[in-house]
């Protein structure tokens, strides 16, 4: 998947995560995460973001994520949606989710 522009998904509500993706040509995936549960789950949230991007074939991106205690399934959904928006695509592969 190729990112064309900035894509955002999510809200600042409790138990949600607001994910903003920006396309980059090089440098891998750079994640700036702030979380209300940083100490306990920060590492895990970053891993889920990274894994979700890898599954979508995105190797370079800058990620800004503001987490308010989202579960892993929510993190995956928000990252995917942000990626599809940034790539201007709507051909969701529902079966793979």
């Amino acid at each position: 998947m190729k990112l064309m522009k900035t894509g955002t998904a999510g809200t600042m509500e409790s138990n949600d995560i607001m994910v903003t993706l920006e396309p980059k040509e090089t440098g891998g995936v750079q994640i700036a995460l702030s979380s209300s549960v940083m100490q306990q789950f920060g590492r895990q949230i970053e891993a889920v973001i990274r894994q979700t991007l890898t599954e979508l074939g995105i190797a370079h991106a800058s990620v800004d994520a503001v987490d308010k205690g989202a579960l892993d399934c929510t993190v995956r959904a928000r990252v995917r949606t942000a990626a599809y928006r940034a790539a201007d695509q709507q051909n969701y592969d529902w079966g793979a989710m």
């Binding site: 549960v37 100490q39 306990q40 789950f41 920060g42 590492r43 895990q44 579960l71 892993d72």
Partner: peptide, 10 residues
């Protein structure tokens, strides 16, 4: 199972 295993507080 719902939230995952939290990292211990340092």
């Amino acid at each position: 199972a719902i939230v995952g295993k939290p990292d211990p507080i340092r």
